[in-house]
Design a protein around this nucleic acid. Sequence first.
DNA 1: AAAATATGAATGAATG
DNA 2: CATTCATTCATATTTT
Lengths: 181, 181
Amino acid sequence: MEEGLSGRFYIKAAGGVRGSGGGGGGTKCGRWNPTTEQVKVLTDLFRAGLRTPSTDQIQKISSQLSFYGKIESKNVFYWFQNHKARERQKRRKVSVDEKDVNIRREEKIPQPKYFAEVTNHVVEPAADRVIQTLQLFPITSFDEPEPAEKLRLRVGECREFAHTFVSDIDHPPLDLRLSFF
Amino acid sequence: MEEGLSGRFYIKAAGGVRGSGGGGGGTKCGRWNPTTEQVKVLTDLFRAGLRTPSTDQIQKISSQLSFYGKIESKNVFYWFQNHKARERQKRRKVSVDEKDVNIRREEKIPQPKYFAEVTNHVVEPAADRVIQTLQLFPITSFDEPEPAEKLRLRVGECREFAHTFVSDIDHPPLDLRLSFF
DNA sequence: AAAATATGAATGAATG
DNA sequence: CATTCATTCATATTTT
């Protein structure tokens, strides 16, 4: 249904096209599709404390990462910008649902996150080759104190405080009165 | 090689019966599976004009909807995001009727601050001017049509050639030694 | 069960 | 920096 337009057959590359190596220099262009190595490096840099790289740094990073595949400076720029923004947003939009379901009495993951950030980079076979001499020490971030990015495990938790008791109530006290001003 | 997966595995969610009416419980996590009530409310809100709820609104909505079942803010956020996008997407597939021979030769490609900044963007519709007090019960179907259409020139160009296939080099001399000082 | 489709989630790219 | 749009990917659901 949705199809029929755009006439762009995307290569249904199962398993993520992030395939390393290839360089993605294929015919598929449009928007940058980072390779796993690129993402890994970027992530490492971020975790190392880099949040808002300068133009200079961006250039260097981009330059280095270009080895793994097509990449432009702006990609690096945007990557950091997005990553940071989303990291923050996750913190903000953390479910703040209280009340309502009262049965929730159990634990609550100490770190309820917006959503499970999958940081499980499958170990690349070529990982060995990827000798990233990332020796970025705590960089002086001019933005704000580095919040010690800790690696969070995937939210294995699926605590769903069931709402089972919602038997046959006609209309719960639902009253979404949103005032837009 | 193609081993580089996106690394996104979710726990197989068993029996995600959307049929909320009855139990609805038991669904495992994986991805949010809205109940019919939740969808109904969301749809009503959307139809009432809500298109891009603010963080606050998202919180409220999420909170209210949690009555019907497990839900998080991000779900609401994504729901609206997707719903709007798809609504527009479908709208867009009908905009091919008129062969607007008026082809604008916009050579300028919007680039970030790295290149010449271009601002020849089409006028922003600003259709989020929905002012109303959303009440759960669609008292007044303030149904507003899809206003404005942006017709954004998407430049999915592949201007930059892929990095030259590095064939000689054995190992990427990745050495991100950024000099910050 | 396979194919088609609907939709939740993620992220690159902008814009203000 | 935040907010938003467009695209794409991964599943769930429905259809054949």
